[in-house]
Design a protein around this nucleic acid. Sequence first.
DNA 1: AGTTTGTGTATTTTT
DNA 2: TACACAAACT
Length: 748
Amino acid sequence: MTALLTDLNPEQLEAVTWPHQSALILAGAGSGKTRVLTTRIAYLLQSGLTQPQNLLAVTFTNKAAREMVARISTMLPINIRGMWIGTFHGLCHRMLRAHYEDAGLPQAFQILDMADQLAVIKRILKERSLDEKVLAPRQLQWFINNAKEEGLRASQVDTRGSFNRTLAECYQVYEAVSMRGGTVDFAELLLRCYELLSRNEILRDHYRGRFEHILVDEFQDTNRLQYQWIKLLAGSGSQQHAAIFAVGDDDQSIYAFRGAHVGNMRDLEKDFSVPKIIRLEQNYRSQGNILDAANALIENNKGRLGKNLWTAAGKGESVRIYYAATDVDETSFIVDEIKALHAEGLSLSEIALLYRSNAQSRVLEHGLFNASISYRVYGGMRFFDRQEVKHALAYLRLVASPDDDNALLRVINFPPRGIGARTLEQLQDQAEILGTSLWQAALKVCEGRKAVTTRGDQPGRGIAGFVNLVLSMQQACEGQPLPEIIRRVVDQSGLVAHYQAEREGNNERLENLKELVNAATSFVHEAEDDSLTAFLAHASLEGGEHQAEGYQDAVQLMTVHAAKGLEFHSVFISGLEEGLFPHENSRNEPNGLEEERRLMYVAMTRARQRLYLSYAESRMLHGQVRVNVPSRFVDEIPEELLKRLRSSGFSGAGYRQGLSGTGQNTVSTAYSRQGRGKHTPVSAAVRVAPQGLNTAGLHIGQQVSHTKFGTGTIVNYEGNGSDMRVQVNFHQTGTKWLSLTYAKLVPL
DNA sequence: AGTTTGTGTATTTTT
DNA sequence: TACACAAACT
């Protein structure tokens, strides 16, 4: 116990040992949030204040949930099964599985991910012959999800005005389709579970009696429905049973655009009579100047709960800022700095390149690629999102639940078996008439045909072929273990044969199909429920890793959103221009600018030692060169914390005027465009030393030796004191920037 | 039925 | 610019 609580600062200790009463922990970036959360759990258990089965901990991402489980396991020798730890969706799903009948769902209900949901919506719009221009599928999807997050069913939404009526009607149809197919989308998991608990008193009392402590991570990201769900589970007023332990940071709320409601923090304080907010303000991550800069920036937001991060570490380095002529110039600056940092011994994986929008990664990737610096881009397609995997999953869904129209439509003609648009139309009409699923209609069609004549239908083709295929799959899977089911379905589906038959580029697809079997094998080992249905739910709820590559030391490229929760030795935030960051679309959104500022705050607080900010005067965007003004966020950082790597008097080079770097002490970097957009440096950064360089007995032209790079000549330098770096032209390895504080240079 | 050409459109994203 | 998706072609 004492071991558990040592090394906690007073605020952390107060949070961890908080009595059985609701709490709101305002946990700044790098203040040991996860540690407090997990230590609190360990403390409650170890001191016998509660039992594992009386705890519920909820997070947003599977990754966070896994991390929590892992950390608790290292702190406590006890078995933590019995504890409910998971994402909102995962926990709701668990309850719905346990009480599917009470929730009005079929036993094998399937979960639709965003893409599946969008496909259903497109189908509905097409059936109702609503033009995309009148009602975009995404708009309807947004509408439905929003309504659900507000707790509204189709019958409850606003129907005033013809457009609203159309939306409501579509929502109604969507509900009916979901019901018939036994499918549940992400928002539905939450709403259904909420409704289940609010309507079913017995169940509600059961869970209220069970959970004494409800711990919520990233509380600032909860939406209204999630908060209602927590409230319902905890009980409120005189009904209150559980204590809520909410940990969050209003300054890091960057998901309002998808329904997160920071106001939940204030509501919690009120609804659960939280006596005081505990503030974790000591930061264990970043050095002083970085924190001061971040604090100064976020000060510009109104209505904050209020918090000022501080550190016991020193001021550290200044925040470096670079004003580039163009995006290409900006990239080349970043590349040079990365080379220097790497040369000084920093691993590439300790360097992050952050940007506001994904489109910005292109130039950066290009630059890194040309410089042969390995990098890794986060985001993009996940395993269970891949086409071939989705096809295989669709077959599996049909085995588990054949009335799932979405799954059926996905693979009824894939691999192609001669079912064209008109056949499909007939089938859909048939289903419409019978008021059943497509699968039921298909069964009817087959029966009818058998009775009349099977006129030369080739086996395995047409509707009959499909129906027989699915039936035989179902038969083959009866009573088989999960990996075997998947092996058989993948095999019988003809997907492998199909991809093999195609000319090229399908190796990866075939590998992924094999990988699906592996995924099932490991799933069987880990999950307590190893049924097919459970695996399918797992696939929907946990899209799988973005990239399954092994570890390789590489520069990390990602959006600022993706960087939340991570930290790096050195961070580059690029594209700090008005219109990009803050993004111009944020202007139309209420409090959009403040969310952008929080985003910037999150970005800055990712850095431990060194933070680089950069902006480009002109940038290629959407195929056009745009001239931009520096981001207001740069101006919000006190000048004394900054170290400008290019004089701010710099003006117009690059795209507009060609090269022009002027004046002494300015870095002039020029590029020529060659061939198809390939760029090559014409002259590397050159800085004319104003006088000699007499620090540490070094001067330009001085011969030095380095343990790793051998001997070379000092050609350039910048900065002073501990920040001083010199550029050395090594005989073997070429020119490198080295920091005098790190590199051990011996004058010759 | 599959391939090609054309058009439109560009934040952020987890479950 | 570049990609996704849809209509149009063969």
